[in-house]
Design a binder for these strands. Structure first.
Length: 431
RNA sequence: UCCUCGGUAGCUCAGCGGUAGAGUAGGCGGCUGUUAACCGCUUGGUCGUAGGUUCGAAUCCUACCCGGGGAGCCA
């Protein structure tokens, strides 16, 4: 007899199966034990009745501790009294390891405790659901780009200098003489790749040594960064819109149970459909002044501003054409108004914050050189990047989407640190 | 870096000058359909650390350490 996974139990009603997993929890009632078993694909109730199995097995089923590893043989049966509609009538129990004093109980725990026990916390129902959804979103992202003829062009993690010249970087020794930095963005390399392959995307971890400790920040997180030759700002706004819709729809299609376990209000996800509202920074400013968030015109959007915009539209909203002062040096200016940069932020609803930041890139060599100097950046570090404007420069654009923020939004989680297997934050590098 | 809140049993917390508490987890016993099961009993503590005030400090004061949330910056 072969192993059957819990998420396939529905197709095995009436059959004898073998479940290989762990004891999630137990409720006992005299001559009846209800063992909640998990195997990584779900949780199912297994029922053991005294008299139907050996006394020894019954006693053992009532004694083993939470997270004991077990192989259970039994008959799958439909029963409305069981959560999920099916349960396993236990016939035999093999205990690989009987566990005592598993640290994480089925009760509220504080974040410090849970994060310190992240290696175990991942076993809990909601955390497992988030990880499955994260995996699905990654797959949806890759499918989205692969299906559109993009080439995956991963950027280096070690870089000789800052990509954007703004964030604080993690410094590492690169053998004896050189210093290297952990990348904060693959974008500049993505631009080189786009000049070679046309449509590309970079997908990997990035690192920020900012001393940020908020529910939206990690020091190590994943970002997908498409870059498209001959594309305009409007082109990549379409692309970002399509990407977000694809991710949401893939999760809705494949993860109803996980969303239910997370108590996610799916009606809010079901109405995420293109087109997303597109407003200029100026229009956003007028709206924010009306909403009274304390927004100061000319500044970047603060977290309360982003939340207010998200709530106002109930949909990801694309804010484009920003004052160039608040945006990065590589963004192209708007020909219609040179005070504006051709950048776009996609702000998620429900307090998700900035999911995407993108722009049309400056493709003129002299403009870009001037911008690098104006920002006080070392020209020599950008020599290769400037070459892209010397040899066949073309209009091009791209964006970066923060994976954990997207996962947090779709899963309805408050903290991005629940949305990556092992989060790295300002105060935490363990486990 | 700044602002703010907190650190008491394995965990979640109450206690806020006068004998260290509850729930939960763990242990023992009971219960044939439980859904965070329930009922009875029970083990479990350098009250973050170091000073200080006081007859007496978990409680008040000071410093430090650790963590949460937020600002700035960003995805």
């Amino acid at each position: 007899m072969s192993q059957v996974y819990i998420n396939d139990f529905g197709a095995h009603v009436g059959k004898e199966v073998e479940l290989k997993g762990w004891l999630y929890s137990r409720r006992s009632k005299g001559k009846l034990h209800f063992l909640m078993l998990r195997d990584g694909t779900g949780i199912v109730q297994s029922v053991v009745a005294k008299g139907e199995v050996s006394d020894e097995l019954f006693e053992q089923a009532g004694r083993i501790g939470q997270e004991s590893s077990v192989i259970v043989r039994g008959v799958v049966r439909a029963d409305a009294r069981a959560a999920g509609g099916v349960e396993l009538g236990m016939l035999d129990l093999q205990v690989l390891q009987d566990v005592k004093d598993y640290p994480i109980a089925h009760q509220e725990h504080g974040p410090d405790f849970l994060l310190g026990n992240r290696h175990l916390w991942l076993r809990s129902k909601k955390q497992a659901a988030i990880m499955r959804i994260r995996s699905r979103i990654v797959r949806a992202i890759r499918d989205f780009f692969d299906d559109r003829g993009f080439t995956l062009m991963d950027a280096p993690i070690f870089t000789p200098s800052a990509c954007e010249g703004t964030s604080t970087l993690f410094e590492v020794n690169y053998f004896d003489e050189a210093k290297a930095y952990l990348t904060q963005s693959g974008q500049l390399y993505g631009e080189a790749a786009a000049m070679a392959l046309g449509k590309v995307y970079v997908f990997g971890p990035v690192f920020r040594a900012e001393k940020s400790k908020t529910r939206r920040h990690l020091t190590e997180f994943w970002m997908v960064e498409p870059e498209v030759a001959y594309a305009t700002l409007e082109d990549v706004m379409d692309l970002a819109e399509g990407l977000i819709c694809a991710a949401v729809s893939a999760v809705l299609q494949h993860h109803r149970q996980d969303l239910a376990d997370l108590e996610r209000d799916v009606t809010k996800l079901e109405r995420i459909k293109a087109p997303f509202p597109r407003i200029t920074y100026e229009e956003a400013a007028v709206l924010l002044e009306k909403l009274g968030t304390g927004f100061v015109r000319g500044n970047d959007l603060g977290a309360p501003d982003e939340t207010a915009l998200g709530e106002h539209f109930g949909m990801p909203v694309m804010v484009h054409r920003w004052p160039h002062e608040v945006k990065a040096f590589y963004m192209k200016r708007d020909a219609a108004d040179p005070r504006l940069a051709l950048g776009v932020d996609v702000i998620g609803p429900e307090g998700a914050g900035e999911l995407v930041g993108g722009s049309q890139r400056e493709d003129n060599l002299d403009e870009l050189l001037g911008r690098i100097h104006a920002h006080g950046l070392p020209e020599e570090a950008f020599a290769w990047y400037l070459d892209l404007r010397r040899y066949g420069s073309v209009p091009h654009a791209g964006f970066g989407l923060g994976l954990e923020r997207t996962v947090a939004w779709i899963c309805g989680r408050e903290h991005v640190r629940e949305c990556i297997p092992f989060p790295r934050t300002l105060n935490r590098i363990y486990p």
